[in-house]
Computed example of a mutant assay.
Amino acid sequence: MARIQNYANMNYWLVKSEPSEYGWDDLNSKGEELWDGIRNFQARNYLKEMKIGDQVLFYHSGKTKEIVGIAQVSEEAFPDPKDDENKGWVAIRIIPKKALKKPVNLEQIKSDDLLSSMPLLKQSRLSVMPVEKIQFEHIIKLSS
């Protein structure tokens, strides 16, 4: 039976990945990916909040530091298969939706008043974080 998603309650997120380890092109070629290996309590709690259909900005960390695509949560939190010690870590699954026409880089985000409160700037080491709907929509506009 298909699960019905209430898009009125959709949330927005940002996930970070080093493109040399796993980048947007990797997600796009696979079509769906397990997002696992997160070992930060706050990031884990955000993973637990993610719901099917939530929109996810895909951010390349490392040298480029830019948002390059939009993914979508395809499976909600479940036990992380890499959690060998059974410590309660979780994973989700995401699917690629579309690449941004123009990546939005960190300098643009820092210099934009609407984006200056993003956790990306306040908690730069966090790999999973929420994004406000207005910020998500603004980033999409900046990328077109």
Rank of each mutant, 00 (worst) to 15 (best):
Y59I: 10
E32I: 14
P130M: 04
N28S: 02
D112S: 09
E107V: 11
K122F: 02
Y22A: 05
S124T: 12
Q135E: 13
W24M: 07
M129I: 05
L14D: 00
P103W: 12
E75A: 14
K98M: 11
S74C: 07
D26Y: 06
N86T: 04
P103R: 12
K51P: 05
L142E: 10
V15F: 14
A43H: 11
F78H: 13
V128H: 12
I109N: 09
A43S: 15
L47D: 02
N9Q: 15
I70T: 04
I94D: 00
N40R: 01
L142T: 13
N9Y: 10
K102N: 15
F78S: 05
K97A: 01
R125V: 08
Q135W: 07
K30D: 09
Y46G: 01
W24V: 14
G69E: 05
V90N: 10
E66T: 06
E76V: 10
N28M: 02
G23R: 00
K65E: 09
K102I: 08
D112L: 00
G31V: 07
I134M: 08
M129F: 05
Y46M: 07
F78A: 08
N45A: 10
V131T: 12
W89F: 12
L27N: 08
S111V: 06
Q72F: 01
N40H: 04
D25L: 10
S127H: 03
K97Y: 02
W13D: 03
V131P: 08
S111Q: 15
E18N: 10
N86M: 05
N6Q: 10
Q135P: 01
D54Q: 09
K110Q: 12
E107T: 13
R3P: 07
K65D: 01
L57T: 07
E76K: 13
K63C: 01
I134G: 03
K16W: 03
G88A: 07
S116H: 10
I52C: 00
N9M: 12
I92E: 00
S29D: 14
Q72G: 02
L106K: 06
N86K: 13
D113Q: 14
D113P: 11
